[in-house]
Design a protein around this nucleic acid. Structure first.
Length: 284
DNA sequence: GTAGCATGGTAAG
DNA sequence: TTACCCTGCTACG
């Protein structure tokens, strides 16, 4: 679940569910109990995401900083008649009640890597060490380009480096590289600025769609299951993709077997024919 | 039932 | 490089 689009969706959901209202702040699991007690009963001012970081603002220069990590979930339920008792390890529960119809909204956080109370200065420090986030209208893509063009690191690693570009995870990385016919191990400094600009523009569109739909869909209209007469993807991720987690299967475009290789502890996926390591001049 | 893995990142060794 | 956070799914017996 948690690439940048997930956090931006959550920011919107939490703002609409809780902003401007007093909330109960609880930590059934206990690991956030001290901070929860400080915030309990105050008004939520709003929630905002930057990359994969989520900040929920409370009065008095206080922000709950959440990072879901790999397995975290923030389960937001709006306007339900009753609030069920927490199950599992609920580190943070936000709860607001007493809407006009007597219904409740609540949000349960489980499995997160980070759930901590920060000052505004600490929040700003996290944002300052993050790269531009393609989902944010205030993003400056040139900051990312200046890092990429000077780096010998593979573009596949740079895209996942949150200080270069914030919010891209393993799925968007694999799919973006496929869509731009780029080998994941190609060094950053060999990219042309036109290639980077095209990739950034594509990310802005793909991730905005991810925020709208809650899934990562990256196949172009001509490669959808309907267009190609192939069965839709069936797994827990929901979206239609070209190469992510399709190692050994046939590329939807050229039929080659999708390759995989570990890079810095994460799995890369690419099509060796659509994303050649070296492109011959004759083909160009 | 249970082992293994995953859309992530930090901290320790 | 490994542990950890400790969810939730799949594959396998």
């Amino acid at each position: 679940m948690p690439e940048g689009h997930t956090l931006h969706r959550l920011a919107t959901e939490i703002t609409s569910a809780f902003a401007g209202r007093p909330v109960r702040v609880q930590s059934p699991q206990g690991r956030f109990a001290g901070s929860a007690a400080l915030l309990d009963g105050q008004h939520v001012e709003g929630a905002e995401a930057w990359g994969k970081h989520l900040f929920v603002a409370f009065p008095g220069d206080r922000f709950v900083h959440v990072h879901l990590g790999l397995i975290g979930k923030f389960d937001v339920r709006v306007d339900v008649p009753q609030v069920p008792p927490p199950f599992g390890q609920v580190r943070l529960r936000l709860l607001s009640g007493g809407t006009s119809n007597g219904h409740f909204s609540y949000a349960d956080l489980r499995g997160a890597t980070v759930c901590e109370l920060l000052t505004d200065a600490q929040r700003v420090a996290i944002i300052d060490r993050s790269g531009p986030d393609p989902i944010r209208p205030d993003a400056d893509p040139d900051r990312a380009w200046q890092r990429i063009r000077r780096s010998r690191a593979p573009i596949g690693a740079l895209l996942m480096d949150q200080s270069v570009l914030a919010g891209v995870g393993n799925v968007y990385r694999a799919e973006l590289l496929f869509r731009h016919r780029m080998h994941p191990l190609r060094p950053g400094h060999t990219l042309r600025v036109s290639q980077f600009r095209a990739m950034w523009a594509d990310l802005v569109e793909l991730m905005a769609e991810g925020v709208r739909t809650g899934r990562i869909d990256t196949v172009r209209p001509e490669h959808t299951p309907e267009a190609m007469g192939r069965p839709p993807r069936v797994d827990d991720h929901g979206g239609e993709v070209y190469v992510y987690r399709r190692a050994g299967l046939a590329c939807h475009v050229c039929g080659s077997r999708v390759r995989t290789q570990e890079l810095q502890g994460r799995n890369l996926f690419w099509c060796p024919r659509c994303q050649p390591r070296f492109r011959s001049r004759a083909v160009q």
